[in-house]
Design a binder for these strands. Structure first.
Lengths: 117, 117
DNA sequence: TCGGGTACTCACAAAGATGTAAGTATGGGT
DNA sequence: ACCCATACTTACATCTTTGTGAGTACCCGA
């Protein structure tokens, strides 16, 4: 998602996309819906994401208030990520989108993606 | 959105994001929900989009089956874009996301976007 | 002293998305 | 002959996102 300075949204959908935008945030939200996860657990839960990108996404989502980061001062270190109320509410709002995707997953997989774009 | 070759989705949300991904498709879907629009009308309806990007998005959405393109052989030319059933169903699924955005738009606008990322 | 586990951080690179400005084709009206 | 409107198309530049691989800090136990 673009990071312009003027964040004047044209509608609610625009605003929502700004917050959950990109390829990964929805999946991270999804992975955290059943409770907090540690960094390593998240990495395994979100298949295919690199450590670097995961951290970047987590930082953004912390800044936007979607999730909470809890550090346990132990050795080895332990950090738990969990959804805030805000994050939970977004997750709820995205549930129907996820259902739509599951209902249509065969059709979506059949799309000739190499011709798109 | 990334265009990898292996389109194996991890869940429905992943698939849905692949289809409506990016900054603009949601808004285009939204603009078309009340009926077909011509190219120029769409450009005005989706504030801030450039002609080039609008066309790219429309082409993608045509390929993914979200919308239909009807050409009227006139001079000056007339082209109408409308949602397919598939597009309508996605729009319906995104309604709750749009509502969430509207309910939280003040909070979202208050996010320090220049510190995100 | 050395390796192990965790959660990062850094430098670098590539891929993808978006933007700008100009040009094309058409035929009707003036 | 010239301009208009519409819907693109093209070339180019830039910005954002994603990826790769290595390295860091910490303390503990062997």
């Amino acid at each position: 998602m673009k990071k312009t300075k003027e964040r004047a949204f044209t509608c609610g959908l625009d605003a929502a996309i700004a917050v959950m935008g990109g390829k990964w945030k929805g999946l991270i939200l999804f992975a955290l819906q059943d409770g907090p996860l540690r960094f390593g657990e998240l990495r395994r839960a979100v298949a295919g994401i690199s450590e670097r990108v995961l951290i970047l996404q987590l930082r953004e989502m912390e800044t936007t208030g979607l999730l909470h980061r809890e550090v346990y001062h132990q050795v080895p270190p332990k950090v738990e990520y969990s959804l805030t109320e805000f994050g939970h509410s977004l997750n709820t709002a995205m549930a129907s989108l996820g259902e739509w995707g599951e209902e249509n997953i065969e059709r979506i997989e059949a799309i000739p993606w190499d011709q798109v774009g």
